[in-house]
Nucleic acid binder design. Sequence first.
RNA 1: GUGGCCAUGGUGAAACGGUUAUCACAGCGGGUUGUGGUCCCGCUAUUACGGGUUCGAUUCCCGUUGGCCACCCCA
Length: 440
Amino acid sequence: MSDEPDKNLTTSPLSGFMELLPAEQLAFNRIYDTIRRSYEAFGFIPIDTPVLERAEVLLAKAGGETEKQIYRFRKGDTDLAMRFDLTVPLARYVAEHCGQLVLPFRRYAMGKVYRGERAQAGRFREFYQCDIDVIGDGELDLRFDAEIPSVIHMIFRQLGFERFTIRINNRKIFGGLFRGLGIERQSVGIMQAVDRLEKVGPEAVRKELAEMGLPEPAIGRLFDFVGLGGTCDEIIAGLRKMGIDDGGLAEGISELETVVGAIRQFGVPDANFAVDLTIARGLDYYTGTVYETRLDDYPEIGSVCSGGRYDDLASHYTDRKLPGVGISIGLTRLFDQLYRRGVLKTGGSTTTKALILPMTEDMGHCFRLATRLREAGIATEVSFVSGKMKKRLGYADRLGIPFVVFVGDDEIRKGTYTLKDFREGDQEELTEAELIRKLV
RNA sequence: GUGGCCAUGGUGAAACGGUUAUCACAGCGGGUUGUGGUCCCGCUAUUACGGGUUCGAUUCCCGUUGGCCACCCCA
């Protein structure tokens, strides 16, 4: 071990780990707070679970992909892993505490998750997910499925978006269709192919399906099916008209119809949601309603929020049947993509509203004023930058602090303060009461 | 995980075999006392790392590391 510190250590963060400058971080936190407030407005309860879990817990129902991507390591005799989403930890949490929880349990969680995959634009190895889920006891009303889009709607409105579409589908429809057409065996491959429809176009998908060995008539029917368009009601009517006889399909259609009706009752305008029979969602644990939300003006970002219903959340951890429905907002991706496109307004690089600039030896006077301003809810700091005025004011200027309060011996004698509005450039001499009234 | 492209000050770029590697922005100092942002002057700072080819490498070749993009997967 060398005693000399290595001054040439790489200072960039690891690839796939987002790190922000102050103004960016503040913009990020504004989005975070907006999401949190909306979740709480619907009565969701905040729950925070550990970033590290026993590997066996996280991998209990993991498929191949998760297994490959999970960060896993040993510490002593313990086999540890970092959470790759917030849903699996929720399952463990609910199984552990269900005796003390009131069901249906409405919880939200906002935290970092980890996936060891190759980073790319909009694809991180460490990122924030903002989840809500409702967990029921044995059964869970379909109206909870409809409430989720209503939460999404509120969040994106609050974030300042008008043009976004919450796409809805039901996994039972796919399942029923595949059974009805006798192509159930290849269902996973078919859904993956259909998911690529928008990306590669119908011809490529048709070819891919043929290569999987699907008979031509079945492919035709499949395309009739995913080609169904129009309003939610037209699509649902179209589905019924296809005349495929399968109990699961009928159930899926009827659930979808119920959910669509309830979404309208929740007041989500038709402009902001749509039935889209092509969305399947990779994760195979969804068993009913599925969601995917896109910003209409930025379709290339892809889904910014997705989720769905699962029949049994915690089957690996408990015998109780706990159905749930939820969604996850990929906050890191959402922020990153919006920021790259310049659609986020960034303000100053500080939370300070008023900077007290002492021009007196009487620092106690300045500190007491600072305390009273803070108690009035005004974010305040006292400047200790010394030197020329140019430098002292330059500090406020560069951080974007909106107000500077000059405290000089003249003012102290008169019992006043000089308040300078940094954006307007003008200033006025005020009493303390006037100062507070002005800044609050 | 598979494949392609790229690596120049803090940031974004220029030079693409040839004397002290250029420019802009940012940063620091100055343009005299209790008033910043614009303007003017000055300063600091760069060829990712290791090897090879060559009289000579930022430039060409190999390796390493890192970044970007596509696929896969997904938030």
